[in-house]
Design a protein around this nucleic acid. Structure first.
Length: 158
DNA sequence: CCCTGATTCGC
DNA sequence: GCGAATCAGG
């Protein structure tokens, strides 16, 4: 059926222009046509249809000396990649962490897991106290919790 | 943190 | 010429 998938046909370009002039965002246009957002933006730029004062900020032309592309060492890019990779499948089951070694702040040492238990300042506030992983302040279970990408989901401290 | 647009560069 | 990668602002 569709032996070939042409890049930008006149129809596509017309559609692109229509959507663009209709005020749709590049994201919408891309999803509608079936291409990536960058493809839409790139084509629009090539067509000389760059947006004017709409949508976002005015940003001065970047220095030509600095390549827009960074091979590596990109803090933002790296964290975005990692986030994308770990995006959804983060299904966290409750880690069975052993209790019974809890200790107070004063009893805390390099040999005790420093994971806080309960609310700081409360009567029963203490620390995990399990044997930590070598080189880390937490025991195995709490290390996993500490490094959990979605730790912002309020992990029940145990 | 997520979104958007814009530019640069490799293919 | 096309589009992914990257940057930058809200």
């Amino acid at each position: 059926m569709h032996a070939n998938e042409p890049t930008w046909t006149d129809e596509r370009i017309e559609l692109l222009k229509s959507r663009f002039e209709a005020g749709l965002s590049c994201r919408e246009i891309a999803a509608d046509i079936g291409v990536s957002r960058n493809a839409v933006i790139g084509k629009l730029s090539r067509l000389n249809l760059r947006r004017e004062g709409s949508g976002d900020e005015r940003r001065p032309p970047r220095k030509n000396g600095e390549k827009g592309r960074r091979p590596k060492t990109a803090p933002r890019l790296q964290y975005q990649m990692l986030r994308a990779l770990y995006a959804e499948p983060q299904r966290v089951a409750e880690e069975p962490i052993q209790d019974g070694h809890r200790c107070s702040l004063l009893e805390l040492s390099a040999e005790k897991c420093r994971w806080p238990i309960n609310t700081p300042g409360a009567e029963d506030f203490c620390f995990c106290g399990n044997t930590p992983v070598e080189g880390l302040p937490y025991c195995a279970g709490h290390t996993r919790l500490a490094y959990k990408p979605n730790s912002h989901l309020r992990v029940a401290r145990r």
